[in-house]
Design a protein around this nucleic acid. Structure first.
Lengths: 211, 211
DNA sequence: GTCTATAAGACGATAGAC
DNA sequence: GTCTATCGTCTTATAGAC
């Protein structure tokens, strides 16, 4: 009725990318409501009206940022293969999750804020995908238990424990830095965390051959 | 210079309590920037100007809510005694943390949002207290290791793992509910979680006598 | 495509009667 | 102490020149 929605080239524009990167930082730091279009524009080095040229409104910009975050998240969920060796599968997943958190702290935090505030911007589709992924992984873990390959453990609680503990450095960075008396977490800090969490998960499953 | 700050009775006023409770829900749901004074007033059943009578401004209201949250948090940190039995100490702490999360999900989430956004409203004093508490607990765990009472484990990573995994039901409730296909987490869900996490922590420490 | 200037509305906070 | 009406500011979003 009131005209077609403005069509934006989905990829390619350099300015669009700049704005998206600036927006990600802004939403990470202030959340949706605290984010300011003016600051995003300044940070991206463009006039504010230019932001509105590439993204219809604030919500559309947030959706675009979130779409990128979710794409990363889906990639992080994917690479678990049904290898026969539980120890290798679990170690690989824990280390990949820690690495993901180290490389994409902003995405990790934006997703965490989204979940904390009820996930109003998350699609039904993403939730369904996550449920299926988790259910399939839980079945696999259950099979390992029945085959006597690992000790009995609630598969869902094990998965939740891995998710929450691997994300903790990003989600509670403020507190962790205060406790460590540091200004920044180093690569070495993350490596040590990955080692610790891997050892913990293996012990939980009774796979701690090195102890 | 410009007059004394308005003095408010610290306790007792019934309306003040109503406003505080309404504010807690609002800040939990929308964060500081997303919270609306009008919604808080409506939710508390008072005119907006009345909110400003009891609390100078939005920040003061948030501070009051946060003070309550932090008081609870400090209580949650306290009750670890230096008992000689690591298994009992760890089990008690894990169960207490899960229980805290179940009873005070709003407080848990407000604190999580605060940490996620850099903890700009947290006092230096609270951070120092948390650091001391964590350091003392870590030393105790280290002593257990040296005495051969538990398996070697990075004490800080163990504490972080307990914190993050016990808080996960509150902080990622949206996701957990989607995975479980539930509308609400029950008392039984939390009890099962507490059992699982207790077993996991004991296995990590090599204290899994029941396995 | 880019930018300046401004419209339109939302929101925190207060003045002042009761 | 309570409440209505309103002020002043901040912010998103757009109109329209280039």
């Amino acid at each position: 009725m009131s005209g077609l929605p403005r069509k934006i080239t989905e990829l390619g524009s350099r300015k669009r990318e700049q704005i998206l990167r600036a927006a990600e930082k802004e939403f990470e730091k202030y959340g949706f409501n605290g984010a300011r279009m003016q600051r995003i524009a300044d940070s991206a080095g463009v006039p504010k009206a230019n932001v509105h040229y590439y993204f219809t409104n604030k919500q559309a910009l947030y959706d675009a940022v979130l779409a990128y975050v979710i794409e990363l998240w889906n990639q992080a969920l994917a690479p678990i293969d049904a290898s026969d060796d539980p120890a290798k599968v679990l170690e690989k997943y824990v280390r990949m999750k820690v690495e993901f958190t180290r490389i994409y702290p902003a995405s990790t935090r934006i997703f965490a804020i989204e979940l904390l505030t009820g996930g109003q911007h998350l699609s039904e589709r993403l939730m369904t995908e996550t449920r299926r992924w988790t259910r399939d992984r839980a079945k696999e873990i259950q099979r390992w238990i029945e085959q006597g390959k690992i000790l009995p453990v609630d598969p869902y609680h094990l998965i939740f424990m891995i998710w929450s503990s691997t994300q903790h450095y990003a989600e509670s960075e403020t507190q962790v830095l205060a406790i460590y008396r540091k200004k920044k977490l180093s690569r070495a800090d993350y490596d040590k965390l990955a080692d610790s969490l891997t050892a913990m998960v293996l012990r939980i499953c009774g796979l701690n051959n090195r102890d």
